[in-house]
């Protein structure tokens, strides 16, 4: 594993001293903990640093948490996929001849597309097992309705009722998919 670049360490220090960027420091801490629960500690730190570097270099103007948070999660996911691909190419799990490796193209990764398609099929099958209310909530969410709008649509007594219903439905859906969205 490559060592943490020096500029990234400096960046961390800067973040820690800047009150505005305290959010980034906490974000890094969460990313490291999340990645460490699935990969090695070193890989987790690398992932966190890479996410922060991208945020710093390309999205320096994004400061609002409502935008920064999903953006960092999206970058994290891209980095994780790239890390897996790199590990596969390096033959860390299986030794594959260089001649068998497909050439990288501009289009989407076929493996990733296949995995996404498979997840979508599993998701469709899992949704079909849900109750009528859960399917209705999921349908309204897919139509872009917010929770307050869903509350009006379903004539629920309070917004918290919708939160509770959706939370239970999400648990049921996750359980129907085997506990994880990804296979």
């Amino acid at each position: 594993m490559p060592a943490i670049p020096a500029y990234a360490r400096i960046l961390i220090k800067e973040i820690a001293t800047d009150p505005h960027d305290q959010t980034l420091a906490r974000l890094r801490e969460r990313i490291v903990a999340f990645a460490a629960s699935r990969y090695t500690r070193e890989a987790a730190e690398d992932l966190a640093q890479e996410v922060l570097v991208v945020l710093h270099e390309k999205y320096g103007e994004v400061t609002r948490l409502e935008e920064l948070f999903p953006l960092s999660l999206q970058i994290l996911r891209f980095k994780i996929v790239a890390m897996r691909r790199k590990a596969y190419r390096h033959g860390e799990h299986t030794q594959v001849s260089v001649d068998d490796l497909p050439l990288a193209g501009d289009g989407p990764d076929p493996e990733e597309m296949m995995a996404r398609q498979e997840t979508l099929e599993r998701l469709t099958a899992a949704i079909a097992t849900l109750g009528e209310r859960c399917r209705e909530i999921f349908r309204l969410k897919l139509q872009g309705l917010s929770f307050p709008e869903i509350q009006k649509q379903m004539r629920a007594e309070s917004l918290n009722t919708i939160y509770t219903w959706d939370h239970r439905c999400r648990k049921q859906l996750l359980s129907a998919m085997g506990g994880r969205w990804e296979k």
């Binding site: 999903p70 969410k141 897919l142 917010s146 929770f147 918290n160 959706d166 939370h167």
Partner: peptide
Amino acid sequence: KLLGGYATGTLTEAEK
């Protein structure tokens, strides 16, 4: 309880 609205992108700004 707000997790379900994250993936569908239907959370309001306050909820986010």
